[in-house]
Simulated assay, not measured.
Amino acid sequence: MKQEVTVTPDPVDARLGARLVELRTERGWSLGELAERSGVSKSTLSRAERAETSPTAALLNRLCGVYGRTMSQLLSEVEAEPAPVLRAAEQPVWEDLASGFVRRSVSPPHGALRGELVEGRLAPGADIAYDRPPVPGLEQHIWMLEGRLGVTADGVEHVLDTGDCLRLRVWGPTRFRCAGPREARYVLAVVRP
Rank of each mutant, 00 (worst) to 15 (best):
D10E: 12
V21Y: 06
H158S: 09
S43V: 06
H110Y: 11
E77W: 01
G155F: 05
G111E: 09
V159R: 14
V106P: 01
T6S: 15
C64H: 10
S105L: 14
V151H: 07
A57Q: 09
P9A: 02
T53F: 11
E49I: 05
D127S: 11
E119P: 01
L166K: 03
L138G: 02
W29Y: 08
T70M: 12
W143I: 03
K42S: 03
V190F: 03
G115E: 10
D96Y: 04
V118E: 02
A51N: 08
V5D: 12
V102Q: 06
R19A: 05
T6R: 15
G150W: 07
G17E: 11
H141M: 12
E36L: 11
P136T: 00
V106R: 04
G115K: 08
A123M: 14
L45K: 06
S41F: 11
W171T: 03
T174Y: 01
V135F: 13
Q91D: 02
L188W: 07
R182W: 00
A112F: 06
A57E: 11
L168Y: 01
D10P: 11
S99Y: 02
A80L: 13
E81W: 06
K2Q: 10
L149P: 00
R47Q: 15
A98Y: 11
L59P: 12
P181R: 09
V106F: 07
A83H: 14
R148D: 02
D161W: 06
G120K: 06
V78A: 10
T44H: 13
P55A: 03
V93I: 14
G17A: 08
R175A: 03
G111H: 12
R24E: 03
V7C: 09
